[in-house]
Design a binder for these strands. Structure first.
Length: 206
DNA sequence: GGGGCGATATGCT
DNA sequence: GCATATCGCCCCG
């Protein structure tokens, strides 16, 4: 059981190897990023709560889902105590159950006739992870339970899996122009389901 | 494996 | 109103 009331900086590494289930699809998380509150210029919570980001300021153990680039739904797991903003962006995962469903969702959103999605790419990258899980924007605020949860039960559930037992690497967060000096992105090294930016992080100053 | 661009809610100005 | 967004696809070497 992962204590989500801790800081995102403590929770993020523990999420690597943990398993997030939504219905039939379960993912072992392989790449995450920590985001803090008003002290973190890269965080959506930086400028205080808004209607969209309010859930980041609430109690831990909820999802914060937002629309990115008009097409992608990205999932964050809210952590830190109630009243303190913080979340962990779920960037990539390895599908451990429900690959057929995940693939159907992925390919349904692509141009017909394009090449099939390899297993390791089903949930590689935040947008793909959201699509593989079947997220909708209304999932923002949903509770993520931590008790045993089967494929036929509704809602989201987090299980320990290999949490705390995996090798991990860290580096700058992807796609943020600020706070590039902190290594708050965590991933499982040599794991093919980790997004490609891993090998060529675009830091402003190589 | 790199560059171009889409497609839209959100939140400053 | 408008720039921006915690990106991903496709096409081209």
């Amino acid at each position: 059981m992962i204590d989500l009331s801790r800081s995102p900086l403590e929770v993020a590494p523990l999420l690597l190897g943990a398993v997030l289930r939504h219905g039939e699809v379960a993912l072992e998380l392989t790449e995450v990023e920590a985001y803090l509150g008003p002290d973190d210029p890269a965080s959506h919570a930086f400028r205080g709560p808004t209607a969209r980001t309010q859930v980041m300021f609430g109690p831990p153990g909820h999802l914060y889902v937002y629309l990115s680039y008009g097409v992608h739904l990205a999932a964050n797991l809210v952590c830190a105590p109630d009243g303190t903003a913080g979340a962990v962006l779920l960037r990539s995962g390895r599908v451990v159950d429900g690959a057929v469903v995940a693939r159907r969702r992925r390919e349904g959103a692509r141009r017909p006739g394009s090449a099939p999605v390899p297993d390791v790419e089903l949930a590689r990258g935040p947008g793909n992870l959201g699509r593989a899980l079947g997220l909708v924007i209304e999932d923002s605020g949903a509770v993520v339970g931590q008790s045993p949860h089967g494929p036929r039960e509704p809602g989201f559930a987090l299980a320990d899996g290999r949490s705390g037992q995996v090798e991990l690497a860290c580096g700058p967060r992807v796609g943020v122009s600020l706070a590039h000096e902190v290594d708050w992105r965590f991933w499982i090294p040599a794991e093919p389901s980790v997004s490609r930016y891993a090998r060529s992080p675009r830091a402003p100053r190589g």
